[in-house]
Design a protein around this nucleic acid. Structure first.
Lengths: 347, 347
DNA sequence: CTGAAAGCGCTTACAG
DNA sequence: CTGAAAGCGCTTACAG
């Protein structure tokens, strides 16, 4: 373990005081050009790297991040909430506090209220499951104007309203679903039924758009049926899918929203089931894969997304250009063969 | 930013000295049962969480990890090397030094030499691309016996020889490849050609075994041809595939090893190409996806694996049960639609 | 423009 | 069994 150089070593090598070395390291100014040059050379030759933890300690850096989530119970946002809770010990040990604030439904007014409630004196960063509404954009822009870093999580909004979007590219996810189902048909003709949660929801609309794009371009022998809408309600999903399977069974189903439980129920006693791709790896979809009731799951690892959002906020709040950990948030494709081990992760 | 409690706060609340609070926090013993109870209660009620960074600083914790890699130039291990280099600034700022040691070929003797060269006085952890050879296992067991944490990376060995394996489950990868190609055939009969690098290499053998297992069980109408072996040489791959496509073209090809460049060349002017799944997302396979020369890539995100291995070693060397970041190292499936953005990552 | 000193929240000897 | 003190590598006032 060869000793790593400290700033004191740098100062000694440069023949200046610790304080001067610190001034050039942190570009605080008020240093003679000659001294600065000497320090810079010493940093270079010694290969000095600042100890980030010591720096943060002396700075008394403590961060509090607020995560703004829709209060929808069960399902996806429950998973997000669980992922946040699982991050708390890790972040607490780094003096980073995590607060969850829930807003009712996807109500823009409620969300704006929560955004406005973020006090720059208390909150060092905000991750928000956003919506497209202009009043939300306005509120976020204003929050950023007050100096609070903002990232959108899972669901994006106007780029001007956030430093970054941490979440899946839903258009890409739809495209991938189309590619899978298209290849599964192996050139045969057929119709695909999209089961939407809500056509007005941005992520669902994006997935459908990507899906259509690829089917039309690369699988012209396939047709996309008019989507049915379930409002993410499993019972409605079951009814809709059962009806579809009875009349004129489609060759494939692309389940774009939630309600996998209903889908699975509808499939339980079908003699020949269509090819099926659904979203979100949870207890239900996982079991459905294992029982061969569906073919593939497209997932946006919520745990990784949460971790990435927090890392990003930390770097933004720090101001300094910190190196990042690698993360790939592209849509993940799970078959029954490449499932991750269970870890209390699935809702 | 409500002030987080320090150990001093705990000591005050418990009515003992800082040192005593520290003794119970760190289970150092020599504390009266009554004092210990008071401290524990104070920790509980205050919600005290130790500042890990301050602790590490005062401990002068500096770590040096050695990564033992085969010296094979180009291709996969080049990517691993690049991922390690990209981790250096991040780890250096946390006082963690990274050293790469290369051993020739996959030669067990050379690897054992490198393992034995790890001095417990200098090295706080070792990540090794291992092989199955018994002498390697022996050397690693001995290294662990000297108190050095060991994890295997990318390629595993006897479980007794390491604390954990960080890498892809190659059997699962083979299964997933079979599932994809099986579904792509949509019930039609056909033959699949496996293109191996080296049948004696553990990871290739595992992939092939998983592949066969799923084809036999779930796609009995498909047959698996005798694998051809390329020694991961692109030119050989090209020759072998060209020959196969000329005589009796298979319905699909599963490229298990390296040499994607050769595969792509062979496919360049084929009128009707087979369905194709290959391994490792790199510049070549990426472009092949985009040009629709292949259908899917199965990838084991090397950058994430390296990060995970280093995190694991840090936790092992620390001794303390540190909370971990989420990571999913299961085989990743890329189509042309869900590719990650380029980031100088691909070889 | 330059420097000496206190303090961040811990751990580690050292003394009772 | 208990406590007081120094020090980890930085940053932040404060004084020249």
């Amino acid at each position: 373990m060869s000793k790593l150089p400290t700033l004191q070593d740098v100062a000694d090598a440069a023949g200046v005081s610790y304080a001067t070395a610190d001034r050039v390291l942190n570009a605080r100014g008020n240093v003679a050009a000659k001294s600065a040059a000497k320090v810079r050379k010493a940093i270079e030759t010694l290969g000095y790297v600042r100890d980030r933890n010591a720096a943060n300690l002396s700075r008394r850096r403590r961060m509090a991040f607020r995560l703004l989530l829709p209060d929808s119970a069960g399902g996806f946002f429950e998973t997000i909430r669980a992922a946040i809770d699982r991050q708390k010990p890790l972040r607490a040990a780094q003096r980073i506090q995590l607060e969850i604030a829930s807003y009712t439904g996807f109500d823009p007014v409620a969300l704006v209220r929560e955004i406005d409630a973020c006090d720059p004196a208390e909150i060092d960063g905000v991750a928000v499951v956003a919506t497209d509404a202009p009043e939300v954009t306005r509120a976020l822009v204003e929050l950023r104007g007050r100096g609070v870093p903002v990232v959108t999580l899972v669901s994006d909004t106007d780029p001007a309203a956030r430093a970054a979007y941490v979440g899946m590219d839903n258009v890409a996810a739809g495209r991938a679903a189309a590619r899978l189902l298209g290849l599964f048909q192996a050139g045969r003709r057929g119709a695909i039924l999209p089961v939407l949660g809500d056509a007005k929801s941005r992520d669902h609309a994006d997935r459908l758009a990507g899906f259509r794009e690829v089917v039309v371009r690369d699988f012209p022998h396939l047709s996309v049926l008019d989507p049915v809408e379930s409002q993410d309600d499993p019972t409605r999903v079951e009814t809709l899918v059962t009806a579809a399977l009875r009349s004129d069974p489609p060759a494939a189903i692309y389940s774009i929203g939630a309600g996998n439980r209903g889908l699975v129920s509808a499939l339980q006693h079908v003699p020949v089931r269509p090819r099926i791709v659904v979203h979100e790896l949870g207890a239900v979809s996982r079991q459905a894969l294992e029982r061969d009731l569906i073919d593939a799951v497209i997932d946006q690892n919520p745990a990784v997304e949460v971790a990435e959002a927090l890392d990003l906020l930390t770097r933004l709040a720090d101001g300094t250009a910190q190196p990042a950990l690698p993360a790939d948030l592209t849509p993940r494709i799970y078959l029954r063969d490449n499932l991750p081990e269970l870890s209390g992760d699935a809702p």
